[in-house]
Amino acid sequence: MQIRYKAPQGAGKVEIDDGATVSQLVDALKASTGLADVTIKYGWPPKALDIRQYEASLQELGLQRESLTIAPAGNSSTNTSATAAPIPSAEGSRETAQKTNDRKDTSLLGTQSMATAQGGMGIKDQNISVSMPETASTLVLRIMPDDNSCMFTAVGGALRGLRSAADKNYSAHELRRIVVDHILENPQKYSAAILGKQPAVYCRNMLQPDTWGGEIELAIISELFAIEISVVDVKTTNVWRVGEGNDYEMRCVIVYSNVHYDRLAEVFVEGQEEMDFDVTRWAVDGSDHVIAHAKELCRILRDEHHYFTSTSDFIVQCDICKWVGQGQDSVIKHVNQTGHQSITEIKTS
């Protein structure tokens, strides 16, 4: 199998046997990056692989589907649940971050996330869209609420009528419950090694409305609803197809900005705001043009609106002591050392 990674010197990939263990992957990554010791993070929010997982297979942990983040050991925070600082607004060089909130399992918490940060840029009001001449229609961005359930809401809006009555919508809370029930019903598949914590604890957290969903939840929703979920990354325009290869007939498309998910929809009436008439699912075999235009729309979001947050690249300043740092890990370290929680991203261009 081929494993992709991002490291301080740039992106890369390693080839490794399908049955390889995490320990073998670590050795391959050390050889590829030239680092003597590494911290490997996966998932979102990023969590570090624990030495207790080293004898598990990559297949068991689902790492064959991941793009890993590699950092020199000791140069990376062990905290893995923090969110990134907000991105700058279009009208000024900086935008003030919301003060961090108090959660039980993280030190840098709940800074203002993507949709709220973008609110000052008027993304929602600008009705970001691209035309699709193949079908005489328009692909539009549907902004999801900034409530820590954006992934569930984005996908839920594309599931109408699946496994249910034709007019049935799936709320974020319902999808959380469906995911949790599936995990608890399959303890051998979803062990503590896979989830990163005991299943009961993981599920209890996932039912809370302020817990972010990620790869595990997307994979479960894809499986249970028999739908491919194509996730387009705003910064890179890369496409991650959850459920690819399972012969699902339909797909939906969501947009990921590194801290926030939004949904894409097709409309046939210009300026349509009523989402009940959105087309949110397409046949896998006949929707390559939708993916192509989704990438086009993401390039507009990236280049014209800076609608993404890079958790490793952003430059920040502490509003209290005027310290300047780069990336999520430096923010975590500064907050832990000083207790200062008013952090602003500095626009560099």
Rank of each mutant, 00 (worst) to 15 (best):
residue 180 V to R: 00
residue 289 H to E: 15
residue 307 Y to R: 04
residue 157 G to D: 04
residue 294 A to P: 00
residue 24 Q to E: 14
residue 226 A to N: 11
residue 236 T to M: 05
residue 308 F to Y: 11
residue 231 V to C: 13
residue 234 V to Q: 09
residue 161 G to H: 04
residue 125 D to Y: 08
residue 135 T to F: 05
residue 28 A to V: 05
residue 85 A to I: 14
residue 283 A to W: 04
residue 132 M to L: 11
residue 198 Q to T: 10
residue 298 C to D: 05
residue 98 Q to M: 06
residue 195 L to N: 08
residue 344 T to C: 02
residue 245 G to H: 06
residue 157 G to E: 07
residue 68 L to K: 05
residue 51 I to F: 00
residue 140 V to F: 00
residue 100 T to H: 06
residue 312 S to G: 03
residue 345 E to G: 00
residue 349 S to G: 07
residue 346 I to C: 02
residue 8 P to N: 12
residue 250 M to T: 04
residue 73 A to V: 00
residue 109 L to E: 12
residue 129 S to R: 12
residue 284 V to N: 07
residue 158 A to C: 10
residue 22 V to M: 07
residue 324 V to G: 02
residue 31 A to F: 06
residue 289 H to T: 15
residue 302 R to A: 03
residue 72 P to E: 15
residue 48 A to D: 11
residue 102 D to I: 15
residue 200 A to V: 09
residue 4 R to M: 05
residue 283 A to Q: 04
residue 251 R to Y: 00
residue 297 L to Y: 10
residue 13 K to D: 02
residue 311 T to M: 10
residue 227 I to W: 06
residue 237 T to L: 13
residue 84 A to N: 10
residue 117 A to T: 06
residue 223 E to K: 14
residue 86 P to S: 12
residue 47 K to S: 05
residue 283 A to N: 09
residue 153 T to N: 01
residue 144 M to P: 05
residue 138 T to I: 08
residue 194 I to P: 00
residue 326 Q to V: 09
residue 190 Y to A: 13
residue 309 T to S: 01
residue 95 E to P: 00
residue 225 F to T: 13
residue 331 V to Q: 12
residue 189 K to Q: 14
residue 177 R to Q: 11
residue 243 G to V: 09
residue 301 L to I: 01
residue 318 C to L: 03
residue 44 W to D: 15
residue 201 V to Y: 10
residue 86 P to F: 09
residue 26 V to M: 06
residue 5 Y to I: 12
residue 89 S to D: 12
residue 246 N to A: 13
residue 196 G to H: 14
residue 292 A to H: 06
residue 91 E to A: 08
residue 168 K to H: 11
residue 94 R to N: 03
residue 20 A to I: 05
residue 9 Q to I: 03
residue 252 C to H: 07
residue 140 V to S: 10
residue 192 A to H: 04
residue 146 D to H: 04
residue 60 E to Y: 07
residue 133 P to D: 15
residue 277 F to V: 08
residue 285 D to E: 14
residue 136 A to F: 04
residue 184 L to H: 01
residue 130 V to E: 13
residue 241 R to G: 00
residue 7 A to Q: 09
residue 34 G to S: 08
residue 253 V to Q: 06
residue 114 M to L: 12
residue 124 K to P: 03
residue 328 Q to P: 00
residue 237 T to M: 07
residue 344 T to S: 10
residue 126 Q to P: 01
